[in-house]
Design a protein around this nucleic acid. Structure first.
Length: 829
DNA sequence: AGCACGCCGACT
DNA sequence: GTCGGCGTGCTC
């Protein structure tokens, strides 16, 4: 295998490249390199190739060889897009590993890894053939319509024509027009990434002289007052800032674009076009890096460093607010001094908070940020800066493991227990924490996992000394852990002290906090208003037409929503089944909590934070800013409120209903509940003042609640591990689950049973199911899950996966498999 | 993933 | 009779 095609003038060798296409197809394809590209092909560059009849794709060159394929004629590469590779060899190896480990295709990995702006838009253009005269009366209606449109607009894309004719299948018509020589069709690829350009205005130095300027101004004032305004504005702005943007000038002066243009024509102003970065950061902040570590932080840092001498992965288990971030910062500084790169992974949600600002203060412009709320152009900029080694540190969410690092010395995975590190839909179903361990290993780098409540898998590995383990038990600055009050809902119901969903205890605590101008966060792990609308007479509940779930009522829209497929319908006023008018709301979500609170406490400033209120790019940041600036007294939210929030004046945290967490039918429910409650509690009273956490529950004696109160992670771990062991769950067993989907339940049943039986031939008792999942129909597909559990010793998972792959492939060649979708999920959450 | 080919129901 | 619906198979 060659990395570069060797070129010499006399070299007339023919090269073939294997490329990865950004599609969910199982193998890579081979293309032929035209001679004139022999010198430019290289592994990791993007190539435009035709795939199928008419589609062009951006593919990534995975390997080069001189071996011509025997069974078919390879097509030629159309174009090579890059002067230098945009994907490194290390990344290609990483992609391959992900595809292999998580049982998906390299194309799917490419889709997740490469910002879509680095892929191409393939826009098929249709034009009239000018060299050809034709008789319009010979055409049918649709053909006529197209030629008419092309007379007005010389170029149409396929999608334009689809709109024009109002039908999907336009290719046959175009094909006939093409064959009659009436139109020409060109496949045009355009680079989607456009650097952002801004126009700066400078004054002709002649007018720096104040006499000249006054003279000019007088002339302008009479003949072109708008231009005079622009000149004045320019003088004002140039005093305030060193460079004046044209857009700012227009805004400030009220002069139009045309006035500025005339001034440029008169050579009063000079325009300068510059490519500017979309990634804003304030430079020039003095480095405030002179913090000192507390004694326990110093000890932890030293212990981490010591472990790194023998171990590749270290778990830093530190209670909330123990100051893990400062320890990270020291390690990052050290790595930067050694000239190596650092990747700092955080859950998506935490990235929008001050942590970015804090790190920018320490590391200035050598730190890059990467997450899903970035648009494509911004992502490409980060990608390229990492590639050019301009960023030494990247702070990013899950997908930043795919950035083109050259020499990663350290990966920090903060809040490593977070389930959001695992991607579910679409494939690759990878866990960024686990992938990071492989990635670091490839680079000869280290991994630091940080958490107050480590995932059991991680803690297990640490206790087995596979990972180093460092514990931090003290809160930074001696901040006390909050007081946790458990309130029995049933008891308060009997005493009639409940006010809607709030216990008397919580109401009182909130009142006291608000009186002292402190803030409150309420946690309710369910969005929307009411999960279920139910007829009081016949118990009918409206269900989604596409999924097996009842619809959630959203008061804001006044409609019933499906949280799985997004389907919405109007709320019925009478029961569609029996015609009764008594429809009742069962259960409650964040929206209802907010609503009821606004009635109970009308003067309080409320805000809600959940998926529905944070969809757009800045909305989350806005809520957080309002909270920080104390424009919000009480924040009601889902999971989100537990993560990354760190506000000094939040002294009371209320968990509206802990049972909804604890009753979740999943073997991890207890682990999750503990993490959730510990995490939420950690938000209370972080600076100076001891906070209070109120947990409302029907079951105040629940074991996990006791463990939360005592903050006894180890006890939780030990009790849960017993169960995990006896019921064959991770970390003792490895799980690979396979979802199989079909539109018809009867067919699905047969398919799932067949596939499970085939798998049993190889794996016997290790195969469980098929069973319907909790939600057994989504988007009109019925679902069955087959689970495989592998013991950790004596089984090669690599071999097992290969067998599973073969079995699925074999199944897919049978008649029975028609119409099915099979999706393996390795290490599912 | 597209896109073409091919086989069945409702329209000019 | 054809148009156009979707199910199925292939793409270097």
């Amino acid at each position: 295998m060659l990395e570069f095609a060797e070129v010499q003038p006399h070299n007339r060798k023919t090269f073939f490249v294997e490329v990865i296409l950004p599609l969910a197809i199982s193998r890579n394809y081979t293309y032929r390199v035209p001679f004139d590209m022999n010198g430019t092909v290289a592994v990791g560059k993007r190539a435009v190739v035709q795939f199928g009849k008419s589609k062009l794709y951006t593919a990534v060159i995975a390997s080069i060889s001189e071996q011509a394929p025997e069974k078919y004629e390879a097509k030629y590469i159309i174009e090579i897009l890059d002067d230098a590779p945009v994907v490194t060899q290390k990344q290609l190896k990483f992609w391959h590993w992900i595809a292999d480990y998580y049982m998906c295709n390299e194309g799917e990995v490419m889709n997740a890894a490469l910002p879509s702006a680095l892929k191409l838009a393939s826009e098929t253009k249709v034009m009239l053939n000018r060299e050809f005269e034709f008789d319009k009366t010979q055409l049918n209606d649709k053909e006529y319509l197209i030629t008419e449109a092309l007379d007005i607009q010389p170029e149409l894309t396929i999608s334009d024509i689809v709109k024009l004719l109002g039908q999907k299948t336009v290719m046959p018509i175009l094909k006939s027009l093409f064959e009659k020589n009436i139109v020409t069709i060109s496949e045009e690829v355009s680079e989607r990434y456009k650097p952002r350009r801004k126009t700066y205005i400078t004054l002709n130095p002649v007018y720096q002289n104040s006499d000249n300027r006054r003279e000019l101004f007088e002339i302008l004032e009479k003949r072109a007052p708008k231009q005079a305004d622009a000149l004045l504005s320019y003088m004002k702005l140039s005093r305030q800032q060193k460079a004046v943007l044209k857009s700012d000038l227009i805004e400030d002066s009220g002069a139009g674009d045309s006035s500025i243009k005339s001034l440029i024509e008169k050579e009063v102003f000079f325009a300068e076009h510059k490519t500017v970065s979309r990634l804003s950061y304030d430079e020039g902040d003095e480095l405030l890096s002179n913090f000192t570590l507390s004694e326990s932080q110093e000890t932890a840092l030293a212990a981490v460093q010591q472990h790194f001498e023998q171990k590749d992965v270290v778990l830093l288990h530190g209670v909330t607010a123990s100051g893990k971030t400062q320890v990270y910062i020291r390690l990052i500084e050290e790595m930067m001094a050694a000239g190596r790169q650092v990747l700092y992974l955080l859950p998506e949600i935490a990235l929008t908070t001050h942590i970015i600002e804090r790190l920018r203060i320490y590391f200035g412009s050598s730190i890059g940020v990467y997450h899903s709320k970035f648009n494509d152009n911004e992502r490409v900029e980060v990608w390229q800066k990492v590639l050019r080694n301009e960023y030494k540190v990247v702070l990013g969410a899950r997908s930043s493991v795919f950035l083109p690092f050259d020499d990663l010395g350290l990966i920090i995975v903060d809040e490593e227990h977070e389930t959001s590190y695992k991607q579910y839909d679409p494939a690759p179903r990878y866990n960024a924490r686990d992938a990071a361990i492989y990635l670091a290993n490839m680079h000869g780098g280290k991994v630091l996992l940080g958490s107050a409540t480590p995932a059991f898998e991680t803690y297990y590995n640490a206790r087995l000394h596979k990972y180093g383990l460092v514990e931090m038990t003290e809160r930074y600055g001696g901040v006390q852990l909050p007081v946790i009050e458990v309130v029995s809902i049933s008891k308060e119901l009997k005493q009639k002290t409940m006010q809607s969903h709030f216990t008397g205890v919580l109401m009182e605590d909130m009142r006291v906090a608000l009186e002292q101008k402190e803030q409150v966060i309420l946690f309710q792990n369910r969005r929307g208003y009411a999960p279920v609308l139910m007829c009081k007479v016949c118990a009918f509940t409206p269900k989604c037409i596409n999924c097996d779930v009842s619809l959630t009522y959203h008061k804001h829209s006044g409609k019933l929503h499906c949280h799985y497929c997004g389907y919405k319908e109007d709320t019925p006023t009478v029961c569609p089944a029996c015609g009764a008018t008594h429809l009742e709301y069962k259960g409650f979500g964040t929206e209802k909590v907010e609503d009821e609170l606004s009635v109970l406490m009308p003067d309080v400033r409320l805000a809600r934070m959940d998926l529905d209120t944070t969809r757009s790019r800045n909305s989350l940041q806005n809520i957080l800013n309002d909270l920080e600036e104390k424009k919000i007294d009480i924040l009601v939210g889902t999971q989100m409120v537990a993560k990354g929030l760190d506000f000094a004046d939040v002294t009371v945290i209320g968990i509206i209903n802990a049972d909804s967490l604890l009753k979740y039918p999943d073997y991890r429910a207890n682990e999750r509940s503990f993490q959730m409650l510990a995490q939420v509690s950690g938000r209370a009273g972080r600076r100076g003042k001891q906070g209070k956490v109120v947990i409302q529950t029907y079951d105040p004696n629940h074991r996990v609640i006791k463990q939360v109160i005592e903050n006894d992670y180890l006890d939780l771990y030990l009790t849960e591990m017993e169960e995990r062991k006896s019921f064959k769950y991770p970390p003792f067993y490895r799980i690979i689950s396979i979802d199989i989907k079909h539109k018809t339940p009867e067919i699905l049943y047969n398919q799932a049973e067949y596939l499970a039986a085939e798998l049993r031939k190889h794996f016997g008792e290790r195969v469980i199911g098929p069973e319907p999942p909790l939600v057994n129909r989504i988007r009109n597909y019925y679902i069955k899950t087959i689970m495989l559990k592998f013991e950790k010793d004596g089984v090669s998972v690599v071999k097992a996966k290969a067998l599973i792959r073969d079995t699925i492939t074999q199944f897919q060649t049978t008649q029975l498999s028609k119409g099915s979708i099979v999706q393996p999920d390795v290490d599912p959450y």
